[in-house]
Design a binder for these strands. Structure first.
Length: 657
DNA sequence: ATAGGGTTAG
């Protein structure tokens, strides 16, 4: 932790004088800037040496440049400038430190220009603490110096320190400029330790308005993005509409905001507005990545295909992130073969391309295939990333491949020298727990080298839900209520488990606890795309104009099913009600409404594609299996975890989900 | 001398 020392806070008048306020001029008498000005050297040899160092730096020959430096008593500012940028370019921290030392010896540590360069160099070399040291040692802190340290700290997420220093800068009376605002806003958004990023961000918003920066595209886009990152899409959108000048970056930032904050329909609407409205901002590859993400989130296959065609027309189909996003989009629309085709046709692939393909197969329950692709990636010399392991372990989990998953998990350390993170442990607990090997899951948790976090306990609780283990669920949820008291999902899971065990008093207790803490259960919501339009359904929907028709359809279907010996699975209903009433509630589940809507509004032979924001309930699962046979339709449902491909009375998950 | 948006998992 590094902060500006309290004795360094000084009054503006004092700050402007060149007297050292830290030591009152006593500590570095040898560094008097005026008497030892290196530029006063006129020797021809020196001049040549300086030129030589500079040209060596320009050629990228840092080592030789440093050798010449040892014979040069009076390097110039420009020489240092080139040396510093060369060290950054060559990624050599040790050389950077060496140049810095020489620079101090030459008395250039009073030069704010070089201090700025040094801070940027250290930031690029990953040593922010060195950068802070330079900042501390620089008495004449110009706005460039301040901005450089803000940038360095913001990049590594030390937002709290940026804001602390920003406060000091304001107090001293140094005016911010447009660059300052971009860094400080980034610090709000990227801060890991900031309590109230939104509040702080709004404060900076006020400052920049007072400084008249509201016409600057860079500042305003950063502001928009800051609101997006702290989850305030509505603030972001009001900044966006207030912007007098917008460019492609501002449009992309706004689209990305919607795509990332669970508003994919708005993202697509804004994209269409971007294309149709008269202005100079055209979508580029970055825009398209967010648009594809929105299609993926909605499983909007028709839209996705149109966007793909647009990408081809605009010649954006050679850009790696765009192609990767296409693989994901097709995968999340249930079109594995199309995702594979994009992958096969790529001229270059990176680890993200491989990971995307692995998780596509994993999501669809093709665990063995996912492992094969993982192995193929290794064989082609691509080193797996942390996410590669999360993807492949997730694939094992969906397919119940416990031994394979264990093997891969062990190989992480033994073969790839990678230490499993919290997420990896969460995957393993999920894998073991789903397979009803809860004892092994607990054992793994006991042997973790880090304290198990909410992800891990959450996986365990999810497994308890599947296997209705009340005792373990109580243990897991008591930890979770401590770790993330505001996550309503945990309360719902526990209540589900109690309900299944018919422990109605306990159900009530958990529901009351949830209510007392002011938490709302996330409503079940499903989406379906019909003729390029997206329709959404929430459970017990009364807004949809076809709702009567849908209910009639479902009731008729339910009767039909009963005649064929099907019993409604009502155990997921959280109330102790009459069976008939429970059936009515289960009948109103959003995914059933969406399935019914799809059947009514599409033609025979058309695949029905549905996404759901929660896990598919057991009754919906068996009803959809029934419908797929009864109506002879393929139905694809993607829930939060994975795909269910219903066909001819069976589901691709093999009832393991 | 310094600035803004995007990809993989759960």
């Amino acid at each position: 932790m590094w902060v500006l020392q309290s004795h360094q806070i000084i009054q503006p008048a004092q700050f402007l004088s060149h007297r050292c306020y830290t030591c009152n001029g006593s500590s570095r008498p040898q560094l008097c800037f005026l008497t030892l000005n290196p530029s006063t050297s006129t020797s021809k040899a020196n001049k040549n040496n300086n030129h030589l160092i500079q040209s060596l730096c320009r050629q990228g020959n840092l080592k030789q440049a440093l050798q010449v430096l040892t014979n040069e008593p009076n390097p110039t500012q420009q020489t240092y400038e080139l040396l510093i940028s060369s060290c950054a370019h060559q990624h050599s921290l040790s050389d950077g430190i060496h140049v810095h030392r020489r620079l101090v010896d030459s008395g250039f540590d009073e030069d704010p220009f070089l201090a700025t360069k040094l801070i940027n160099m250290y930031s690029e070399l990953g040593s922010v603490d060195h950068a802070c040291q330079v900042f501390d040692d620089t008495r004449d802190k110009t706005i460039y110096v301040w901005n450089a340290i803000f940038r360095a700290l913001a990049i590594v997420g030390r937002g709290e320190e940026v804001l602390h220093l920003y406060g000091q800068m304001n107090w001293i009376g140094i005016p911010s400029d447009r660059f300052t605002y971009t860094y400080v806003l980034k610090a709000c958004a990227a801060s890991e330790d900031l309590n109230l990023p939104l509040q702080k961000g709004r404060e900076i918003h006020g400052h920049l308005l007072r400084h008249g920066c509201d016409g600057n595209v860079h500042v305003m886009t950063t502001l928009l993005d800051m609101y997006a990152r702290v989850g305030s899409a509505s603030y972001a959108s009001s900044v966006f509409s207030a912007m007098p000048i917008k460019n492609s970056v501002s449009w992309s930032a706004m689209i990305a905001c919607y795509a990332k904050n669970g508003m994919p329909i708005k993202a697509l609407e804004l994209f269409h507005q971007m294309i149709l409205e008269e202005h100079d901002s055209y979508p580029n590859s970055v825009t398209m990545v967010s648009v594809l993400q929105a299609c993926a989130a909605l499983a909007a296959f028709e839209q996705g295909k149109m966007i793909h065609a647009y990408i081809l027309r605009r010649g954006l189909d050679s850009i790696l992130p765009v192609l990767n996003a296409l693989i994901v989009m097709y995968g999340k629309c249930g079109e594995l073969a199309l995702g594979q085709r994009v992958f096969d046709q790529m001229k270059r692939r990176d680890v993200v391309s491989w990971n995307s393909l692995i998780s596509n197969y994993g999501m669809h329950g093709f665990g063995k295939r996912a492992i094969q692709i993982f192995d193929k990636m290794i064989n082609q010399g691509v080193s797996p990333s942390r996410i590669s392991f999360i993807s492949v372990l997730g694939a094992c989990s969906h397919a119940g491949l416990v031994e394979e998953g264990n093997f891969l998990f062990e190989s992480m350390v033994s073969k790839y020298n990678m230490h499993p993170s919290m997420e990896h442990y969460a995957c393993m607990v999920d894998l073991l727990g789903r397979a009803n090997r809860l004892d092994e899951a607990i054992k793994l948790m006991d042997n973790m080298h880090i304290e198990p976090g909410h992800q891990v306990w959450g996986s365990l609780l999810g497994s308890c839900r599947i296997h209705c283990n009340v005792e373990l669920a109580e243990r897991a949820s008591s930890v979770l209520f401590e770790l993330e008291p505001r996550n309503a999902g945990n309360y719902v899971l526990l209540a589900d488990i109690y309900a299944e065990a018919k422990m109605w008093d306990e159900v009530k207790r958990v529901k009351n606890l949830c209510e007392a803490r002011g938490l709302l259960k996330v409503p079940g919501c499903s989406w379906i795309e019909v003729r390029r339009k997206i329709y959404s359904f929430v459970s017990v929907d009364e807004i949809n104009p076809q709702i009567e028709q849908l209910h009639a359809f479902l009731t008729k279907l339910a009767n039909e099913m009963k005649e064929q010996g099907y019993a409604t699975q009502t155990k997921e209903v959280l109330y102790d009600l009459e069976e008939e009433e429970k059936e009515r509630i289960v009948l109103g589940h959003s995914e059933k409404l969406a399935v019914a809507f799809g059947l009514i509004n599409t033609s025979k032979g058309e695949t029905i594609r549905i996404t759901k924001n929660l896990r598919l309930c057991e009754d919906c699962h068996s009803v959809t299996k029934f419908i797929s046979k009864f109506a002879n339709r393929e139905i694809l449902v993607r829930d939060v975890n994975r795909f269910h491909h219903f066909k001819n009375g069976f589901c691709s998950c093999g009832d393991y989900w």
